[in-house]
Design a protein around this nucleic acid. Structure first.
Lengths: 208, 208
DNA sequence: TAACTTAGCGAGGGATCGCTCGCAATAATC
DNA sequence: GATTATTGCGAGCGATCCCTCGCTAAGTTA
């Protein structure tokens, strides 16, 4: 009865404890950002969701800002990996790419990203902390697009604005959908985007 | 010396006082939404900008929510009138329409609209109060587009998703620009949108 | 086992939040 | 001019915010 037959959570090293707790805190932060928005994602709210006391959180993060910045990095990383793997498992048709992109922008986790972007507009400190992250995020998205055969006909210099514009369109759509859903237009909009892109690609594949 | 030679603000009726104060409060709210964002637009912040004490504001609005809802209505109305008059004073070319639309979405006042939309996502009460307003707002925007000769070739049933998608693209662009500005892409993006739309219109003006 | 470091807890500080309420000033009514 | 209604003020209430700090628990090192 004195051997390692102990009840409660299994014995963990300090590094494991720390890593797991930080993981729970970041997960909880993303969750709260999605459900409650940026400002209502308070430290105590995060703590309740993560199963960590308010004070305990500050053992791993100096300020609330550090927490949300870590959450932002995690959101970007997850979006890139999930979107990348989804993209690899399908036919590379333009239609499929558009559908996956819309699904990614409407995913709950992307709402957390929107919250952070929106908050960064009026929060100079958050904006500064997110700048390089956002630059890398967009760059990797464009890289993913560049590897798609369906977009091979797009001139290099217009690929970036094209990809970003499509994403912006879906992002704006996702934001508007929450307050003003129009499910009957979803299919039409996707047809429209596909038609516009194919028309653009078949008309002047190299020039302009 | 007893005649109406009185110093200070001119004599106003109660209706005038009320109307002017409410106007200053709404203006201050829009201003604060642009500069500080939704949650930092506190009642005392609004009061300072409007020159009204915190308690005085509650003579005209029962809750903070009522204030921001009034501001939302004012923003929508202003955007519609200014955009409509700008549109009437120019050639109705597709390029000009796109440029005006981008300018409207990047205007400071539109940031207030974005703040309200974003906040409405996680604030059920605000969302409920803004629903009809947003529906009417979008409907009037589509009506403006429907009156444009440059878009006469667009089939009626695809005009709405087309207009909304372009606006969403500009909205998303405006949001991203704050944290990740790419001024060198602005012109290219506009060229791209114009090319996509003209390609769509010239290719299949009636079918599909 | 003893000494030490790290992880976690929760009460409390200082600040701000939305909102209430008694009071003063202005306008309307008699 | 006297009375009443409206507008405006600002101290104060309860709640919540981020963060600090003294403390215990868990893991590490000797």
């Amino acid at each position: 009865m004195s051997a390692p037959a102990r009840r409660g959570p299994a014995r963990r090293t300090q590094a494991e404890r720390r890593e797991q707790t930080i993981g729970r805190i970041v997960d909880a932060t993303i969750e709260a950002l999605c459900e409650l928005g940026y400002t209502r994602t308070s430290v105590s709210e995060i703590g309740q969701r993560a199963g960590v006391s308010q004070g305990g959180i500050f053992r791993h993060f100096d300020t609330r800002l550090d927490i949300v910045v870590a959450a932002a990095a995690e959101v970007a990383a997850r979006q890139l990996t999930t979107f990348g793997s989804l993209l690899a498992d399908t036919d590379g048709s333009l239609r499929t790419i558009l559908e996956l992109t819309r699904a990614a922008t409407r995913a709950p986790i992307n709402a957390a990203w929107h919250e952070l972007l929106s908050a960064a507009r009026t929060d100079a400190e958050l904006r500064g902390r997110m700048e390089t992250l956002i630059t890398g995020y967009y760059a990797q998205i464009v890289d993913l697009a560049r590897a798609q055969p369906a977009l091979a006909a797009v001139p290099t210099e217009v690929l970036e604005p094209l990809v970003l514009t499509v994403i912006h369109a879906f992002d704006g759509e996702a934001l508007a959908t929450v307050v003003h859903p129009q499910p009957e237009l979803d299919a039409v909009t996707l047809d429209l985007l596909e038609a516009m892109l194919t028309a653009l690609l078949t008309e002047s594949p190299a020039a302009n």
